[in-house]
């Protein structure tokens, strides 16, 4: 599904070069739920931006669902983002004066679906996150957890190949965070491939695979039992 080989991402200013990612390699299979952890500034967000085609890279190769990313133009990258990737942001990134329907409608518009198809997908997505009755609500009328579920619905509506979540529970209290995590697990069990950046070790342990990033490189690669018993069964350094 996602295959990165020796990816390097260097940020340059007049005097400083920062290696945000160096020789970063990761292979994520379809249906996997991968947690990416690491301290602040370790490069995990850069990885997610590169994986989500929000940022480019300087060296290496990257294939997403069999498509080689290198050399694609803006139209092609935008189409890939629209069709294959669903984003879940830490701060939800909902447009405040759009109701839930219109927020979820946005990516579907750019996909070129007709009105009936968009309506069907939006209804399904809201159903999946348990907000079917609130399509006409504004984001401000919802709790933080509900807003994040709307963001998940927006990501799901396009039926993407992979969900990229950047600290999806970072702005939520523990109860809401647990609800969102349960939703992500449910989606994963239903077949969605998910990569989630998180600071929370407990959340990381609750998913099938944990990738630790330090200084732009993968330093720890743990695979946990699907029963979420928090006991590592295999470790690849």
């Amino acid at each position: 599904m996602l295959n990165m080989n020796n990816i390097s991402r260097i940020y340059r200013s007049d005097t400083i070069q920062t290696h945000a990612l160096r020789d970063f390699s990761l292979d994520v299979k379809a249906g996997e739920f991968v947690a990416v952890t690491g301290p602040s500034g370790s490069g995990k967000s850069t990885f997610l931006n590169v994986a989500g085609l929000l940022d480019g890279f300087d060296q290496g190769s990257y294939e997403l669902d069999g498509v080689n990313i290198q050399g694609l133009n803006d139209d092609e990258l935008s189409r890939l983002r629209n069709e294959k990737i669903g984003f879940i942001f830490q701060n939800y990134n909902l447009i405040p004066d759009f109701n839930l329907f219109d927020n979820i409608d946005m990516p579907l518009r750019y996909r070129g679906f007709n009105a009936a198809e968009r309506k069907r997908r939006i209804a399904n997505a809201l159903e999946q996150v348990g907000l079917a009755s609130r399509a006409n609500y504004l984001p401000s009328q919802l709790s933080g957890g509900q807003q994040q579920r709307v963001a998940i619905a927006r990501a799901l509506a396009g039926e993407p190949k992979i969900l990229l979540a950047d600290e999806p529970t970072g702005n939520l209290d523990s109860l809401m965070a647990r609800q969102v995590m349960e939703l992500l697990h449910t989606l994963n069990e239903a077949g969605s491939t998910i990569i989630m950046v998180t600071h929370d070790p407990e959340q990381a342990r609750s998913v099938g695979r944990n990738v630790q990033v330090i200084d732009g490189q993968i330093t720890d690669h743990s695979v946990y039992a699907p029963e979420k018993n928090n006991a590592p069964i295999e470790v690849n350094a």
Partner: peptide
Amino acid sequence: FETGLRRAIGARIKD
């Protein structure tokens, strides 16, 4: 922010 969000979820520059 809105422009960035639209671009992230699939809007092309030409859109």
